[in-house]
């Protein structure tokens, strides 16, 4: 579904991505795991057609980027790390605008919006302004927005950062449902070990713009001889996942976390 080969991205003099390669298979739940500043967000933004790679090959569903960006947008759903639902509109309105933009006609629109409201268990809240939602509800609404055009691939950047444990689990449940019941291919980034372990079939561990290793959580632990993914990470990178990230990256994560409270 997604094929990435020797992808390089420079921002000015900073090397955000230093030649990474990986594939995500159809129907797979794949995780990019690493500290802030490892290059996870950059990778997702490139696949989401938002930024243009400096070098390397990116192929989504057989179409190459950046040439076919406008075609690729038809089958990806993207949920950025920041809270991207419009707080000044109701949940229903957020869904309605997206449904119109992706070209659903009036009949399909109502049907699909109601189905998604049910799936995400938003219920009566859909008529309330999003700024009154809890963090977990905003995340679920955002995922619903990204699903309106039936994307084959769902891209999520730190989907549970800043969420309380209960909300986190409800987001996990939604993602697993999407993958198992609807065969959606999911690529997510995270810096939570337990999230990677609980959700992802395969993980790519990233550090300083490079992929350190790729495999199932069990394979990675076996490979490093560590008992937990957390220890495996330390063995592979020489530091813990909490270290890392510059001022801006940390500020971005904290800002999202604050808004979710």
């Amino acid at each position: 579904m997604i094929r990435i080969d020797n992808l390089i991205k420079h921002f000015g003099r900073t090397k955000a991505l230093d030649g990474i390669s990986f594939n995500v298979n159809k129907g797979e739940l794949f995780g990019l795991l690493g500290p802030n500043g490892a290059g996870k967000t950059t990778t997702v933004r490139i696949i989401s057609t938002l930024i243009i790679p400096t070098k390397g090959k990116v192929e989504v569903n057989g179409y190459e980027l950046p040439k076919n960006a406008s075609i690729i947008r038809n089958f990806i759903g993207y949920v950025p790390q920041a809270l991207s639902s419009d707080g000044s509109l109701t949940g229903y309105e957020n869904l309605l605008i997206f449904a119109k933009l992706v070209g659903l006609n009036k009949r399909d629109r109502e049907k699909k919006i109601n189905e998604l409201i049910d799936l995400m268990e938003l219920g009566d809240f859909s008529r309330k302004l999003v700024r009154e939602y809890s963090g977990g509800m905003v995340r679920k609404l955002e995922i619903a927005q990204a699903l309106l055009h039936n994307p084959e691939i769902l891209l999520l950047d730190e989907p549970t950062v800043g969420l309380d444990p209960v909300s986190r689990r409800s987001v996990w449940y939604v993602l697993l449902t999407l993958q198992k019941q609807y065969e959606t291919t999911i690529l997510l980034t995270t810096h939570y070990m337990e999230e990677a372990e609980a959700l992802c079939e395969r993980i790519a561990i990233m550090d300083h713009g490079k992929i350190v290793t790729i495999g199932t959580p069990q394979e990675i632990m076996k490979q490093t001889g560590a008992k937990s993914l957390e220890n495996a990470f330390i063995v592979l990178t020489g530091h813990s996942v909490d270290e890392g990230g510059n001022f801006y990256e940390l500020r971005r994560v904290r800002k999202t976390a604050r808004r979710l409270q």
Binding site: R45, S48, T49, L50, S70, R73, N74, I76, G77, Y78, V79, P80, Q81, A82, L83, S84, S85, D86, G87, F98, L101, V102, G103, E142, Q145, A146, H149
Partner: peptide
């Protein structure tokens, strides 16, 4: 843009 709304819109199939 700060809220990520622009990014999410730009990933949509909209000219």
């Amino acid at each position: 843009r700060d809220q990520g709304i622009i990014q999410k819109f730009l990933a949509l199939p909209v000219p």
